[in-house]
């Protein structure tokens, strides 16, 4: 039975190591990989999936 305060565990998509995510992690949040420092995007929480975050230039519209 996982309680609210249980850490959320995920797999680092680059190194495969297990990473602990903050309890209040949200979909879309950017997490810095503790091992490589790469920015990872929380793609989903059910199941927990991370991917390398894309480089994004700022091009705001009207």
């Amino acid at each position: 039975m996982t309680t609210d305060t249980d850490p959320v565990l995920a797999e680092d998509p680059i190194t495969g190591e297990e990473i602990e995510l903050p309890a209040d992690v949200e979909v879309g949040e950017i997490i810095d990989s503790p091992v490589t420092g790469t920015e990872l995007e929380v793609i989903s929480l059910d199941p927990v999936t991370l991917e390398e975050a894309p480089e994004l230039e700022e091009d705001w519209g009207e």
Binding site: E29, I30, E39, P54, L56, E58, D59, W60, G61
Partner: peptide
């Protein structure tokens, strides 16, 4: 088309998808 943007919400860095803007 850029369908994702980087934002800061409540101090958290996030990627928001489903955006409709472009360069």
């Amino acid at each position: 088309r850029k369908s994702a943007v980087r934002v800061v919400e409540d101090g958290k860095r996030k990627i928001r998808r489903g955006e409709h803007s472009g360069k």
